[in-house]
Design a protein around this nucleic acid. Structure first.
Length: 303
DNA sequence: AAAGGTCTCAACCGCGTTCGT
DNA sequence: AACGAACGCGGTTGAGACCTT
Protein backbone atom coordinates (compact mmCIF):
# COMPACT_ATOMS: atom_id res chain seq x y z
CA UNK A 1 0.00 0.00 0.00
CA UNK A 2 1.33 3.40 -0.83
CA UNK A 3 2.03 5.59 2.09
CA UNK A 4 0.22 8.86 2.31
CA UNK A 5 2.32 11.90 3.14
CA UNK A 6 2.11 12.83 6.79
CA UNK A 7 0.51 16.09 5.82
CA UNK A 8 -0.05 18.41 2.96
CA UNK A 9 3.37 19.87 2.44
CA UNK A 10 2.27 22.76 0.30
CA UNK A 11 2.82 26.03 2.03
CA UNK A 12 4.22 24.47 5.17
CA UNK A 13 7.35 25.90 6.66
CA UNK A 14 10.49 23.80 7.10
CA UNK A 15 13.79 24.39 8.76
CA UNK A 16 14.69 26.00 12.07
CA UNK A 17 11.91 27.11 14.36
CA UNK A 18 11.49 30.76 15.26
CA UNK A 19 10.85 31.98 18.80
CA UNK A 20 7.35 32.92 17.77
CA UNK A 21 6.61 29.43 16.53
CA UNK A 22 8.03 27.91 19.70
CA UNK A 23 5.81 30.15 21.78
CA UNK A 24 2.74 29.22 19.78
CA UNK A 25 3.44 25.54 20.22
CA UNK A 26 4.15 25.96 23.93
CA UNK A 27 1.01 27.99 24.48
CA UNK A 28 -1.09 25.44 22.68
CA UNK A 29 0.33 22.47 24.56
CA UNK A 30 -0.01 24.22 27.89
CA UNK A 31 -3.67 24.78 27.19
CA UNK A 32 -4.62 21.55 25.45
CA UNK A 33 -1.85 19.09 26.10
CA UNK A 34 0.04 17.29 23.38
CA UNK A 35 -1.07 14.54 21.06
CA UNK A 36 -3.08 14.43 17.85
CA UNK A 37 -0.12 15.95 16.07
CA UNK A 38 -1.79 15.94 12.71
CA UNK A 39 -4.40 18.47 13.62
CA UNK A 40 -2.33 20.35 16.17
CA UNK A 41 -0.58 22.73 13.73
CA UNK A 42 -3.82 24.02 12.29
CA UNK A 43 -5.41 24.45 15.69
CA UNK A 44 -2.30 26.10 17.09
CA UNK A 45 -1.94 28.39 14.10
CA UNK A 46 1.36 26.96 12.92
CA UNK A 47 2.44 26.55 9.32
CA UNK A 48 4.19 23.30 10.15
CA UNK A 49 3.43 19.65 9.70
CA UNK A 50 2.45 17.64 12.75
CA UNK A 51 5.59 15.64 12.63
CA UNK A 52 7.71 18.73 12.83
CA UNK A 53 5.70 19.94 15.84
CA UNK A 54 6.08 16.65 17.63
CA UNK A 55 9.80 16.63 17.01
CA UNK A 56 10.20 20.20 18.20
CA UNK A 57 8.29 19.40 21.36
CA UNK A 58 9.98 16.11 22.22
CA UNK A 59 13.49 17.19 21.37
CA UNK A 60 13.55 20.79 22.44
CA UNK A 61 10.54 22.38 24.11
CA UNK A 62 9.62 19.71 26.62
CA UNK A 63 10.16 21.22 30.05
CA UNK A 64 11.91 18.20 31.53
CA UNK A 65 14.74 18.17 29.03
CA UNK A 66 18.16 18.30 30.58
CA UNK A 67 20.58 20.57 28.80
CA UNK A 68 24.35 20.61 28.79
CA UNK A 69 27.10 18.10 28.49
CA UNK A 70 26.61 14.45 29.27
CA UNK A 71 27.95 13.48 32.64
CA UNK A 72 30.45 10.76 33.22
CA UNK A 73 27.74 8.49 34.55
CA UNK A 74 25.40 9.20 31.67
CA UNK A 75 28.11 8.40 29.20
CA UNK A 76 28.88 5.07 30.75
CA UNK A 77 25.20 4.24 30.95
CA UNK A 78 24.87 4.93 27.25
CA UNK A 79 27.80 2.68 26.42
CA UNK A 80 26.50 -0.08 28.61
CA UNK A 81 22.94 0.10 27.30
CA UNK A 82 24.13 0.36 23.73
CA UNK A 83 26.10 -2.82 24.20
CA UNK A 84 22.88 -4.55 25.20
CA UNK A 85 20.34 -2.82 23.00
CA UNK A 86 22.23 -1.58 19.98
CA UNK A 87 20.86 1.52 18.29
CA UNK A 88 17.61 1.50 20.23
CA UNK A 89 17.97 5.15 21.07
CA UNK A 90 14.48 5.59 22.43
CA UNK A 91 14.96 2.71 24.83
CA UNK A 92 18.29 4.07 25.92
CA UNK A 93 16.74 7.51 26.36
CA UNK A 94 14.04 5.99 28.55
CA UNK A 95 16.77 5.10 31.02
CA UNK A 96 18.34 8.54 30.99
CA UNK A 97 15.92 11.06 32.49
CA UNK A 98 15.91 14.37 30.68
CA UNK A 99 17.76 13.16 27.63
CA UNK A 100 16.13 12.63 24.26
CA UNK A 101 16.77 9.82 21.85
CA UNK A 102 17.95 12.34 19.28
CA UNK A 103 20.42 13.85 21.69
CA UNK A 104 21.80 10.48 22.68
CA UNK A 105 22.03 9.38 19.08
CA UNK A 106 23.92 12.53 18.17
CA UNK A 107 26.23 12.18 21.11
CA UNK A 108 26.93 8.58 20.25
CA UNK A 109 27.67 9.30 16.61
CA UNK A 110 29.79 12.37 17.16
CA UNK A 111 31.58 11.44 20.33
CA UNK A 112 31.45 7.98 21.83
CA UNK A 113 31.55 6.10 18.57
CA UNK A 114 34.68 7.90 17.44
CA UNK A 115 36.36 7.38 20.75
CA UNK A 116 35.67 3.66 20.68
CA UNK A 117 37.11 3.47 17.19
CA UNK A 118 40.22 5.30 18.29
CA UNK A 119 40.60 2.76 21.05
CA UNK A 120 40.31 -0.15 18.69
CA UNK A 121 36.82 -1.16 19.70
CA UNK A 122 34.10 -1.85 17.21
CA UNK A 123 31.21 0.47 18.14
CA UNK A 124 28.67 -1.82 16.49
CA UNK A 125 29.57 -5.12 18.09
CA UNK A 126 31.47 -3.69 21.07
CA UNK A 127 34.11 -6.26 20.37
CA UNK A 128 37.76 -5.43 20.40
CA UNK A 129 39.27 -4.91 17.02
CA UNK A 130 42.94 -5.31 16.15
CA UNK A 131 44.49 -3.66 19.18
CA UNK A 132 42.64 -5.72 21.75
CA UNK A 133 44.07 -8.87 20.30
CA UNK A 134 47.11 -7.98 22.29
CA UNK A 135 45.17 -7.69 25.53
CA UNK A 136 43.28 -10.93 25.15
CA UNK A 137 46.42 -12.74 24.19
CA UNK A 138 48.12 -11.42 27.28
CA UNK A 139 45.34 -12.44 29.57
CA UNK A 140 44.71 -15.79 27.97
CA UNK A 141 48.36 -16.57 28.18
CA UNK A 142 48.16 -15.81 31.88
CA UNK A 143 45.43 -18.33 32.57
CA UNK A 144 46.40 -21.55 34.24
CA UNK A 145 45.96 -24.31 31.73
CA UNK A 146 44.39 -26.86 34.01
CA UNK A 147 42.32 -24.53 36.16
CA UNK A 148 39.81 -22.52 34.21
CA UNK A 149 38.81 -20.34 37.10
CA UNK A 150 42.22 -19.24 38.19
CA UNK A 151 44.59 -16.70 36.78
CA UNK A 152 48.32 -16.55 37.06
CA UNK A 153 48.61 -13.19 38.76
CA UNK A 154 52.37 -12.87 38.94
CA UNK A 155 52.63 -13.62 35.28
CA UNK A 156 49.92 -11.17 34.38
CA UNK A 157 51.37 -8.50 36.61
CA UNK A 158 54.66 -8.83 34.88
CA UNK A 159 53.05 -8.09 31.58
CA UNK A 160 51.05 -5.08 32.63
CA UNK A 161 53.27 -2.47 31.02
CA UNK A 162 52.32 -3.86 27.62
CA UNK A 163 48.67 -3.03 28.14
CA UNK A 164 47.10 0.18 27.00
CA UNK A 165 45.37 1.55 30.12
CA UNK A 166 42.47 2.98 28.17
CA UNK A 167 41.88 -0.33 26.54
CA UNK A 168 42.01 -2.07 29.86
CA UNK A 169 39.43 0.23 31.31
CA UNK A 170 37.05 -0.20 28.42
CA UNK A 171 37.72 -3.85 28.02
CA UNK A 172 35.85 -4.97 31.08
CA UNK A 173 32.50 -3.55 30.17
CA UNK A 174 32.93 -4.49 26.56
CA UNK A 175 33.75 -8.07 27.39
CA UNK A 176 30.52 -8.37 29.26
CA UNK A 177 28.76 -6.59 26.44
CA UNK A 178 29.99 -9.16 24.01
CA UNK A 179 28.22 -11.87 25.92
CA UNK A 180 25.02 -9.85 25.99
CA UNK A 181 24.81 -9.20 22.31
CA UNK A 182 25.33 -12.76 21.23
CA UNK A 183 22.07 -13.96 22.70
CA UNK A 184 19.26 -12.60 20.58
CA UNK A 185 16.34 -14.12 22.54
CA UNK A 186 17.82 -12.74 25.70
CA UNK A 187 18.27 -9.37 24.04
CA UNK A 188 14.62 -9.36 23.06
CA UNK A 189 13.73 -10.23 26.60
CA UNK A 190 15.75 -7.31 27.84
CA UNK A 191 14.13 -4.99 25.34
CA UNK A 192 10.72 -6.03 26.56
CA UNK A 193 11.84 -5.31 30.10
CA UNK A 194 12.92 -1.86 29.14
CA UNK A 195 9.80 -1.06 27.23
CA UNK A 196 8.07 -1.13 30.57
CA UNK A 197 10.80 0.25 32.78
CA UNK A 198 10.47 -0.10 36.53
CA UNK A 199 9.96 2.97 38.69
CA UNK A 200 12.82 5.27 37.92
CA UNK A 201 15.99 4.74 39.84
CA UNK A 202 19.50 5.98 39.66
CA UNK A 203 21.39 4.68 36.69
CA UNK A 204 23.20 1.42 36.90
CA UNK A 205 26.43 3.30 36.60
CA UNK A 206 25.79 5.25 39.74
CA UNK A 207 25.16 1.99 41.44
CA UNK A 208 28.41 0.46 40.51
CA UNK A 209 30.14 3.19 42.40
CA UNK A 210 27.66 3.04 45.23
CA UNK A 211 28.11 -0.65 45.73
CA UNK A 212 31.84 -0.50 46.16
CA UNK A 213 32.70 3.08 46.93
CA UNK A 214 36.03 2.13 48.43
CA UNK A 215 37.22 0.52 45.28
CA UNK A 216 37.30 3.56 43.08
CA UNK A 217 40.50 3.47 41.15
CA UNK A 218 42.40 6.40 39.79
CA UNK A 219 41.96 5.68 36.11
CA UNK A 220 44.83 7.94 35.19
CA UNK A 221 47.32 5.82 37.01
CA UNK A 222 46.06 2.31 37.36
CA UNK A 223 46.77 0.02 34.46
CA UNK A 224 46.11 -3.23 36.25
CA UNK A 225 42.55 -3.27 37.50
CA UNK A 226 42.05 -6.77 36.23
CA UNK A 227 44.26 -8.06 38.96
CA UNK A 228 44.14 -5.37 41.59
CA UNK A 229 40.40 -4.82 41.65
CA UNK A 230 39.42 -8.43 41.58
CA UNK A 231 41.59 -9.09 44.55
CA UNK A 232 39.92 -6.29 46.48
CA UNK A 233 36.37 -7.13 45.62
CA UNK A 234 35.26 -8.95 48.75
CA UNK A 235 32.12 -10.56 47.46
CA UNK A 236 33.05 -11.11 43.88
CA UNK A 237 29.98 -9.17 42.85
CA UNK A 238 31.24 -7.24 39.93
CA UNK A 239 33.24 -6.56 36.89
CA UNK A 240 35.49 -3.53 36.98
CA UNK A 241 33.71 -0.54 35.58
CA UNK A 242 35.18 0.79 32.39
CA UNK A 243 34.88 4.46 33.17
CA UNK A 244 34.61 4.79 36.89
CA UNK A 245 37.19 2.23 37.84
CA UNK A 246 34.62 0.79 40.25
CA UNK A 247 32.53 -2.26 39.61
CA UNK A 248 29.69 -3.04 37.29
CA UNK A 249 27.51 -5.58 39.04
CA UNK A 250 27.46 -8.31 36.49
CA UNK A 251 27.61 -11.41 38.58
CA UNK A 252 24.75 -11.47 40.96
CA UNK A 253 21.06 -11.10 40.50
CA UNK A 254 20.70 -8.52 43.21
CA UNK A 255 22.86 -5.91 44.84
CA UNK A 256 22.65 -3.37 47.57
CA UNK A 257 22.86 0.36 47.53
CA UNK A 258 23.78 2.00 50.78
CA UNK A 259 21.87 -0.31 53.04
CA UNK A 260 18.67 -0.14 51.07
CA UNK A 261 16.71 -3.29 50.26
CA UNK A 262 18.05 -5.43 47.45
CA UNK A 263 17.25 -3.99 44.10
CA UNK A 264 17.07 -6.05 40.95
CA UNK A 265 17.78 -4.19 37.78
CA UNK A 266 15.92 -6.05 35.04
CA UNK A 267 18.49 -5.11 32.43
CA UNK A 268 21.57 -5.95 34.37
CA UNK A 269 20.22 -9.06 35.93
CA UNK A 270 18.78 -10.56 32.78
CA UNK A 271 21.79 -9.47 30.81
CA UNK A 272 24.15 -11.29 33.03
CA UNK A 273 22.22 -14.17 34.45
CA UNK A 274 23.17 -16.62 31.74
CA UNK A 275 26.87 -16.46 32.19
CA UNK A 276 27.48 -16.55 35.87
CA UNK A 277 29.73 -19.47 36.56
CA UNK A 278 29.99 -19.04 40.31
CA UNK A 279 28.25 -16.39 42.28
CA UNK A 280 31.31 -15.51 44.26
CA UNK A 281 33.98 -15.98 41.71
CA UNK A 282 34.77 -12.94 39.64
CA UNK A 283 37.81 -14.52 38.17
CA UNK A 284 35.70 -17.31 36.82
CA UNK A 285 33.37 -14.82 35.27
CA UNK A 286 36.20 -12.90 33.75
CA UNK A 287 37.67 -15.97 32.20
CA UNK A 288 34.27 -17.11 31.06
CA UNK A 289 33.88 -13.83 29.25
CA UNK A 290 37.30 -14.08 27.73
CA UNK A 291 36.65 -17.58 26.55
CA UNK A 292 33.57 -16.35 24.72
CA UNK A 293 35.33 -13.43 23.15
CA UNK A 294 36.78 -13.73 19.70
CA UNK A 295 40.06 -11.90 19.89
CA UNK A 296 39.90 -10.54 16.41
CA UNK A 297 36.57 -9.27 15.18
CA UNK A 298 36.69 -7.32 11.97
CA UNK A 299 34.00 -4.73 11.62
CA UNK A 300 31.35 -5.62 9.07
CA UNK A 301 31.39 -2.10 7.74
CA UNK A 302 34.27 0.24 7.10
CA UNK A 303 34.58 3.31 9.27
C1' DA B 1 42.51 37.91 9.13
C1' DA B 2 40.91 34.62 5.96
C1' DA B 3 40.12 30.23 4.00
C1' DG B 4 39.30 25.58 4.47
C1' DG B 5 38.26 21.69 7.26
C1' DT B 6 35.80 19.54 11.03
C1' DC B 7 32.30 19.15 14.42
C1' DT B 8 27.74 19.61 16.43
C1' DC B 9 23.04 19.09 16.63
C1' DA B 10 18.36 20.50 15.13
C1' DA B 11 15.50 18.99 11.78
C1' DC B 12 13.95 16.17 7.98
C1' DC B 13 12.84 11.77 5.67
C1' DG B 14 11.17 7.28 5.02
C1' DC B 15 9.77 3.15 6.97
C1' DG B 16 7.68 -0.06 10.39
C1' DT B 17 4.25 -0.36 13.90
C1' DT B 18 0.04 0.70 16.11
C1' DC B 19 -4.56 2.20 16.20
C1' DG B 20 -9.24 3.05 14.72
C1' DT B 21 -12.94 2.00 11.67
C1' DA C 1 -9.67 -9.28 8.36
C1' DA C 2 -8.50 -5.41 5.66
C1' DC C 3 -7.50 -0.91 5.05
C1' DG C 4 -5.91 3.73 5.85
C1' DA C 5 -4.37 7.17 9.12
C1' DA C 6 -1.42 8.44 12.72
C1' DC C 7 2.49 7.76 15.41
C1' DG C 8 7.22 6.86 16.62
C1' DC C 9 11.73 5.48 15.51
C1' DG C 10 16.40 5.38 13.44
C1' DG C 11 19.24 7.11 9.70
C1' DT C 12 20.71 11.04 7.40
C1' DT C 13 21.38 15.84 6.17
C1' DG C 14 22.96 20.46 6.24
C1' DA C 15 23.59 25.04 8.39
C1' DG C 16 26.14 27.25 11.62
C1' DA C 17 29.79 27.09 15.07
C1' DC C 18 34.28 26.10 15.99
C1' DC C 19 39.06 24.88 14.99
C1' DT C 20 43.35 24.73 12.35
C1' DT C 21 46.60 26.39 9.21
Amino acid sequence: MGRAPCCDKNGLKKGPWSQEEDQKLLDYIQKHGYGNWRTLPTTAGLQRCGKSCRLRWTNYLRPDIKRGRFSFEEEETIIHLHSILGNKWSLIAARLPGRTDNEIKNYWNTNIRKRLLRMGIDPVTHNPRLQLLDLSTIINSSMCNNSPTQMNFPRLSGLQPRCNPDLLRFASSLFSSHCHTQDIPMQNQMISHIQTPPPLMETSVDQDVAVFPDLFVDTNLDTSFSVHDFQQNPAGYGMPSALTGGYVPVLNDEYYVSGEPPFVDPILSSATSNFQPHRSNSLGTFQFILSNMSPLSPSPTPY
